[in-house]
Design a binder for these strands. Sequence first.
DNA 1: TGGGTTACACTTGCATGTAAGTGACGTGTA
DNA 2: TACACGTCACTTACATGCAAGTGTAACCCA
Lengths: 224, 224
Amino acid sequence: MLLRDNIYRSIRQAILTCEFPPGQELREQMLAQRYHVSRSPIRDSLLRLEQENLVTVLPRQGYRVNPISISDAEDIFGLRLLIEPACAVAAARADNEALRTLDRFRDFANEERTESEFVEYNRTFHRTIADLSGNARMAAVAVDLDEQFERLVRVSLRVFKYEQVRVASTEHEAIIDALQAHDADLASRLSYEHSANAQSRIVTALRLVAEAWVQPVEAPRTME
Amino acid sequence: MLLRDNIYRSIRQAILTCEFPPGQELREQMLAQRYHVSRSPIRDSLLRLEQENLVTVLPRQGYRVNPISISDAEDIFGLRLLIEPACAVAAARADNEALRTLDRFRDFANEERTESEFVEYNRTFHRTIADLSGNARMAAVAVDLDEQFERLVRVSLRVFKYEQVRVASTEHEAIIDALQAHDADLASRLSYEHSANAQSRIVTALRLVAEAWVQPVEAPRTME
DNA sequence: TGGGTTACACTTGCATGTAAGTGACGTGTA
DNA sequence: TACACGTCACTTACATGCAAGTGTAACCCA
């Protein structure tokens, strides 16, 4: 296993869980010490994360965890509303055997769940449907969007706690039913509504925490 | 300007124009000599290109320009059929002043055009519409897809020459008309048909050059 | 002959050194 | 005071060194 891949995943995870919060400044040296490696694999990882829109490189100054802007979040939402139903439509054409594997996502809310369990469950569910679409590129876009989304979910969960766990789980089961019945139209519609619901909750939450992590518009810094 | 950005663009361009053809093996050393720099910026560029699905890194062995597989091309096409009309729908909501800038894409086929001029024109047209959508993320996906697409177009142009220049240009003007009339439905449908037409030409061309650059399906796919 | 082993050439992964760009701050001057 | 201007600390960009992983081919031995 390549060192840089582990480092990459670690830093990425730290950003997505907001351990490195939006706006956080990152230094190669600091991360190198933290992970006990040289600057090289750190550098590789940070450049990769820049490609993913998770950090910004300020040449010869450092790196910064990308702030969450409302307009960027809305862009992500708009794309998701397009991609997720499309994945569902394609997935509805999968064969019965493959669709039966979705059963493992039923009955999730029957037990008490932690935040991490919910995030993990949610990610795996959406990723599985993306894979079932049979279009690797589409799945890649969907997964990427979901991961960007996840950071927003984390922020939102701090506001809405777990009330959404049961709601989401119920909506998931309806989507599973539609897919297993090969009803592409229904699956698409449910998928769209599921995304829209999640997003409206999140956008509300984002506005609530706007002062802390969400950047409305880039403002000049030295104005005193 | 950072050295690595120039190098990145150069290598990328070489891949997209098939100067580095699909399947070509790349070596850091070889590229470093070619561009008169050390391995560092070459390395940065290659890792970035890996993220874009243009090259594959074989750890401790080297790099390879990704072959074009029919199934991957079909995946790209499928996604394009989803994204391009969505961009058009969003772009139809742009204001009149912005939409008037599309006029510069009219009358392209009135003069003789080189292959490069056509590719450039085509890219700029699609990118402009993506930008007009007002969704930066969607535009980024659209641009990325278009660039992947471009490599396929290059292959296809060697077969169909320039017969498609006039066709494409006419279709573009129809899309411009629809957008400037704010007719989102029509723009969407025309955009879909335009993509579908281009793709069917390309897929035919791909099959013709299959032996040289195109990798047949390696693994059985889940669908179809 | 053929299976296993070893040595080697080759290429990148990671570590480290050096130079150059950037912003901050203090100083001098009008 | 307000504004250039020079200095300095800090951080990355790029260069280079070295070690480790991989594939190949020669070689040994049954």
